[in-house]
């Protein structure tokens, strides 16, 4: 499923035109991205939390060559799904 499928699936249900829904869908994801870029976590109740985590530099190894190298400090994004989503996925 892609973004356009989501728009297709919901525009009739919410009662707005496809074009309008597409615009709002786009803006919702853009706004989430902007927030995460600033390091601000995003919580969507009933779905899950998007959490930016600061990783410290650490020693690593290139698994192909075996050469040791330093993995630089970085920020990574993780998603923690809510129990509601987990239950939905596990329901038979």
């Amino acid at each position: 499923m892609t973004k356009s499928d989501i728009v297709e699936n919901i525009f009739e249900k919410v009662g707005f035109s496809k074009k309008d829904v597409a615009e709002v869908v786009e803006l919702i994801f853009d706004t989430i991205k902007d927030s995460l870029e600033k390091g601000d976590n995003v919580k969507i109740s009933g779905f899950g939390n998007f959490v930016v985590r600061q990783k410290r530099a650490r020693r690593g190894r290139n698994p192909q060559t075996g050469k040791e190298l330093t993995i630089t400090a970085r920020k990574v994004l993780t998603f923690k799904s809510s129990h509601i989503l987990k239950d939905a996925v596990n329901a038979k």
């Binding site: 499923m1 989501i6 699936n9 919901i10 249900k13 919410v14 707005f16 829904v21 709002v24 869908v25 919702i28 969507i44 009933g46 779905f47 509601i84 989503l85 939905a88 996925v89 329901a91």
Partner: peptide
């Protein structure tokens, strides 16, 4: 809000 709820609901259904 109505649209956002529909999005996440739709995504949840799809993952389910």
């Amino acid at each position: 809000e109505v649209i956002a709820d529909a999005i996440f609901d739709n995504m949840k259904g799809s993952l389910a």
